[in-house]
Design a protein around this nucleic acid. Sequence first.
DNA 1: CGATTCTTTGAAAACAGTCAATCTGTGTGG
DNA 2: CCACACAGATTGACTGTTTTCAAAGAATCG
Lengths: 194, 194
Amino acid sequence: MYELLRAYLNKITSSTVSDEEFQFFEAAYSEKKVKKKQFLLHEGSICRYMAFIAKGAMRQYTIDDKGVEHIARFGIEEWWMSDRESFTSLTPSRYNIEAIEDCDLLVATNEKLILLREQSPLFVKMGVILDEKSYIASQKRLDVTISYTAEEKVIYMMENHPQFMQRFPQSMLASYLGLTPETLSRVRKQLLQK
Amino acid sequence: MYELLRAYLNKITSSTVSDEEFQFFEAAYSEKKVKKKQFLLHEGSICRYMAFIAKGAMRQYTIDDKGVEHIARFGIEEWWMSDRESFTSLTPSRYNIEAIEDCDLLVATNEKLILLREQSPLFVKMGVILDEKSYIASQKRLDVTISYTAEEKVIYMMENHPQFMQRFPQSMLASYLGLTPETLSRVRKQLLQK
DNA sequence: CGATTCTTTGAAAACAGTCAATCTGTGTGG
DNA sequence: CCACACAGATTGACTGTTTTCAAAGAATCG
């Protein structure tokens, strides 16, 4: 499991982490399994873990006043899951993080990461790169959400996140795109006929 | 002008920056004025500056295939403007950054900031805090955009960004919210009648 | 196999968008 | 300083897309 993290670290930082430096990662992260339909985080509690998905699929979502779920993000292999606000500032989270499939995770607490940040320059580098990637991704998603029609959203999803289309139920994909499940179903049908 | 940045730095990091450390900031940032309707960044060119708005108002936007403008963000006093992707990776930007009012800016190039990052721990701290804030803000905006009706969006805007409502033209506010100017106008009228 | 959950389909209603005309306010040049 | 021009905002009528509600069909799980 740690080898997956190691390979990911090398890939994302375009470096080769030494055995010595990677030992700090092994000390910081521990293995955790979360079964399908179980939660890594519940709304109202503090997010204790920053989790690296070695295997499986998860979703992070809120529930609004009307009881409607809104999916903030999906995660699959090689993605990170956490409510960063809650994680770093130790405040109660408004998000739920749920396993959609059985998951193998590598998790670290905030204290461990503070230590790791001092021990490993590559960890710091990874953090900067990830921040930037997630910022760019959320800008793009905002753009899509604001300006695309239902059909354009679905096409965008199929082209840019085909993995998601296969692994998450339609109703969740619809919520992610800001559509109703019925609309998503109809748009898919139309697109298949072309 | 530098005093504004200094006060901001103290506020955001909950610290008091020493004269010594702040000298590095003064060396890194230089003053720049941008007049109303002029651009800090044009689509297709590389974003050379990370700008702190000391005075004025700006917007950052893209133009899509159909020629429609989409506003990614607004900025007023004490906000930062830049296309971070272009700025750090020196790639051509797809954004425009335009002054909506005459602006007084403090700008730094990427090289200067790399240096500043080594000189000033407070600058690094500020960077982490800003990343987090902007990430949280964009998650929230995504939520609003996906799940709110036109009326809810306008109410959200009035409650959370009243400064924007006053300083930016309706058409731009509409674009920011993913509405047409007509719809924004109608919703405002309805709300005033209540 | 039965029960539950998810997806699809249909019809009607609500919502926001489009197009076009009018109104308002601001700034500019005569 | 006034009058005109221009851009932005409002209003109305209409259109089209998406949602809502309800029911039937398919898939999944114990």
